[in-house]
Design a protein around this nucleic acid. Structure first.
Lengths: 208, 208, 208, 208
DNA sequence: AATGAATGAGAGTTCATTCAT
DNA sequence: GATGAATGAACTCTCATTCAT
């Protein structure tokens, strides 16, 4: 039975992994169940046996991914003391997450674009958790006399928007000659220099 | 013959309008040619007769949309003098464009998500034009001793990312109870207060 | 437009005809939409275009068939005077209908077997109409002092059961050597001698 | 080893029982092997191990059922003396069998409807045995000067048709409001009053 | 230009059957 | 004997595209 369970876990893991990839590349409607099965090296019927139909598969894959993200984020922030330090951590953690799971920006963008029609409630929770984390940091900063008064949600949009747009625009930037060299030189990694620049700008914007 | 041409124009206009709507709502793969024909009140075969296949239709619709956008942007910026004034204009113009053509954010997000596979080169040009506009404003500001040194592309991502994320997240925010009231009160319009907040933050970030 | 309509009618007619055949042979679950399309010499998608899904197709086919049956029955009975004459007509008309539409017994048997799960209400009406017709004949006979008191529904089951069982058992009888020659000689036609025998027995049973 | 055999018997018995149920409800094509396994509380692969594929399972189930039926019938008839008494026994025995094994009418109807494609030869034998039993009774009656000359097969169809139609139509009658109350009051049991009515009519029909 | 009908290539899903343990 | 997992061939239904009129 132990073996069975291992096998099952291994199979569902492969399925969800492949699903995440394909959904990120093609979106829900564009994704093909055949393609997911192919990449998971699994018979297509196994997807229905282990998980369910395409919608259920999408929900499962999203949930896995965003749970990881919000949990990692929360864990990371707690380690620092000052609001400024926390804000920096927030930005860098976000950037690193997106570099490590490079399919995430595409999924996020697509879900926003479709008005979140396919997002399970549980994933929305993950989003608001992240938003709340940032909001608290900013309020803390205000209380400590370090930050100016802002609309936290707008700051959130700036940070998250910048990171995701940067990541998601990578392929276009590198493929199209129309983009200037200064842009091309930036590469596709967001953690590191880009995150540092975002950090610099955001901190300058909110600091008293 | 004049009548014919008028009729033709009217028909293609209706088709492209409907296509823009449907593509914005459902994405390329999710859009149905039948649905586009229905909304355009046109026989499905007419789409193929006047415009071509689904891909061609998508390209046409995108082109119309982004040409308008970049033209409007360019026209607007030139009117102001100082770099700071121009930067404000840039932000507000972008916000207004997105409010007026509310399908744009969804399309932009989706195209980014798919690595711009369907974007015609001409549209990429429109994008880089906008980027260049902002870059020049920022350089101008530096030259005039008003702005600090920044990576213009990152500033661009912050502005464009914030505006588009704000707009695109509207439906999710208003639908889901998980979002706090302070967020819900922001509404779905980006021009006006939201744009003012973005302007405030961006200017504070880049100002010397 | 006249031509279009003719074409449409012709196509839907062929589809329903083929559907009736295939459903009669294989039942709802056993019928294949591909097979129906093949026999109707029609592209499979046309079935969905003109009529709808498999269930809708089944309902349509059944309705066509049973409406014809009950209408023909009612029309035929009215022409005769005495209860005895009407009862004879009833039996013979039933027999002839089943000979002319030889797929009917199979469909009736199958629907009974499945508890009428797929029968549209409208078809049930057709059934009760026929039952009422027979009931009235028997009551009339009692009133006129010609028939004994009976349970009309049981008489109905005997007549309808006999005719349908005879017809439906035709293929088995002629295929299997185990049936005695006296049975094989009866053939597969129910109108004619078989109906006459049923008539003889039923009349002897109910006559005073 | 004895235990093994008992276990085996128990398992195959459960499988066949479940199969009979499911085939009666849904027919061959509509029946799901998964469902049969579920109802038999048995792993699906066990069905293949113990019995064979779906067709073999169907044949086995049918055979069990009809062997019981024909054996019980034969046993019962022999006990009586006069042709009239035997004919009564025949009818009542048939009715009781159908009440006790209420899945039988559905199976019989379906097999007739499909032209007996799945009936094993051995089951056909059972059928003809029953038919021969009735035929002999009727001939005996003629020889003894009690019955008129009839076509025994037609009498057979009347009896068997009436009983099976009555039983099989039970669910439809009780479910649909279109049936008159006099019909609804008859209930779903065929042995007892309904059988008595059939007996009365058949005897009146064949008696000299 | 316009229309309704037609086509064919998939897409998602189900299911009988088999395998490995 | 028994189990959960796996397989592959259908099957229903959809959709972009084209045809005939």
């Amino acid at each position: 039975m132990g073996t069975q369970t291992v096998k099952r876990n291994e199979t569902t893991r492969r399925i969800k992994g492949a699903a995440t990839e394909v959904f990120a590349e093609a979106g829900f409607a564009g994704a093909r169940v055949d393609e997911i099965a192919r990449r998971a090296r699994v018979n297509k019927a196994m997807i229905y046996y282990h998980i369910g139909d395409k919608k259920a598969l999408y929900a499962e894959a999203l949930h896995d991914v965003f749970r990881d993200m919000s949990e990692g984020m929360a864990r990371n922030i707690q380690e620092s003391q000052t609001a400024e330090e926390k804000l920096k951590r927030f930005i860098h953690n976000l950037a690193e997450t997106m570099d490590q799971h490079s399919y995430l920006p595409a999924i996020i963008l697509r879900e926003l674009a479709s008005g979140g029609q396919n997002i399970p409630a549980v994933v929305i929770q993950d989003f608001t958790n992240i938003l709340n984390t940032l909001t608290k940091i900013l309020e803390e900063g205000v209380d400590q006399g370090l930050f100016i008064q802002t609309t936290p949600f707008v700051v959130h949009m700036m940070v998250v928007g910048a990171v995701n747009f940067f990541k998601a625009s990578g392929p276009i930037r590198s493929r199209h000659p129309a983009f200037p060299d200064t842009v091309k030189k930036l590469g596709t990694k967001v953690s590191g220099e880009i995150a540092a620049e975002i950090e610099k700008l955001i901190l300058k914007a909110v600091r008293k």
